[in-house]
Design a protein around this nucleic acid. Structure first.
Length: 347
DNA sequence: AAGACGGGGGA
DNA sequence: TCCCCAGTCTT
């Protein structure tokens, strides 16, 4: 049996029953594909269901506010996906009469849709012959064909993309694309793949050369950067001061609190730290430590400290991103996971 | 070509 | 700890 037929055969026996596999509706497939970018099926599935319930059609999605979209997205990470979906939904409504495109070249123009997602939506929705190349495909091809070009190098991406399209099963691109990804996710897993019961073991280069644990090759990224965010909780009766985060940093357009970033874990009684707080919030400012958190992102390790602030002064003309909200409305705002957890525990 | 961008889970 | 996850966008 050919490589392609082995994969398809394996898939038809072992595939999971996932909701987005029962439709060719480009809108629903788009929803699932964006949610599943860099996200495990188990983590994304509840969000897919929630989004489809709240936005049954692309028109419903486009009519929402960005804050409503981000609130639904809260906790899933990579929030630009949510913001880009909102933009794309509005483009589809305004420029495509609400009919979601299902051809590769049209999809690729939309924001948030790259090569992988354009191939996925177009093949699943319209049957277009475009090979998907995601983390699963890199791994399966790298191991089976013994390719040691780093998958995150430009040369590697080109090589794997070319090979994937040569291998694409022309009779049913959608079925083959599903099959190779599912095979990578469930059988040819990153750690301890089930080579003992693998239908492709005989022709697998990595297995036959004891390189299963070495392939695929990936270039290491730079170490994480440490950041120290000091948050200030300002409460007046039922009102609390929040900040909408701006472009150019993490958690764009999500809400947290006024803060001061320091270059290191400055001691609480350090003159330097005290004076910078007073410089920002007035000489009479008093702050007391409430709690601390550590939050780990892909490129940053964030050390958070929370303080209660009293006798402060804010210049709202200069800090337009600050706003008072009542405590009972606080949970309506989209928040970073670590901030949301803090609020649940302390407010 | 390299970095930035979240959060969760497995070994 | 480290790696990976149905990647994309920006610099």
């Amino acid at each position: 049996m050919t490589f392609q037929n082995e994969l398809i055969n394996w898939y038809q026996i072992n595939k999971r029953d996932l909701p987005w596999r029962h439709t060719k509706d480009a809108y629903i497939i788009w929803l699932s594909e964006i949610i599943l970018q860099q996200t495990r099926v188990e983590q994304g599935l509840p969000y897919f269901i929630k989004f489809l319930e709240n936005f049954p059609t692309v028109n419903d999605f486009a009519s929402a506010t960005e804050a409503q979209v981000l609130k639904l997205w809260q906790g899933l990470g990579y929030y630009s996906r949510g913001r880009n979906m909102h933009k794309t939904a509005q483009i589809v409504v305004n420029n495509f009469s609400g009919v979601f495109p299902n051809l590769h070249d049209e999809l690729l123009k939309l924001t948030g849709i790259g090569e992988y997602t354009a191939a996925a939506i177009s093949s699943f929705s319209s049957g277009e012959a475009r090979a998907v190349v995601d983390g699963n495909v890199f791994r399966v091809l790298s191991r089976y064909f013994g390719i040691d070009t780093p998958i995150n190098s430009p040369a590697g991406k080109k090589q794997f993309f070319t090979l994937a399209n040569e291998l694409l099963y022309q009779d049913d691109p959608a079925l083959y694309n599903q099959a190779i990804m599912e095979f990578g996710a469930m059988q040819c897993k990153p750690k301890s793949p089930n080579c003992g019961i693998c239908p492709l073991s005989q022709g697998c280069f990595a297995l036959n050369h004891q390189q299963v644990n070495e392939l695929p090759i990936k270039i290491r990224k730079a170490a994480q950067r440490h950041r120290y965010l000091n948050y200030f909780i300002c409460q007046e009766g039922n009102q609390i001061l929040v900040r909408k985060r701006k472009a150019g940093d993490i958690w764009q357009h999500l809400y947290d609190f006024p803060s001061i970033e320091t270059v290191n874990e400055s001691a609480l009684n350090e003159e330097n730290f005290i004076s910078s707080v007073k410089e920002s919030f007035g000489q009479n400012t008093v702050f007391t430590h409430l709690t601390s958190r550590k939050h780990i992102l892909t490129h940053q390790i964030i050390h958070l400290r929370f303080f209660v602030l009293k006798n402060y002064i804010f210049n709202f003309n200069k800090q337009k991103e600050l706003n008072w909200v009542s405590l009972d409305k606080l949970d309506e705002l989209p928040q970073p996971k670590v901030i949301h957890d803090f609020i649940l525990e302390y407010l």
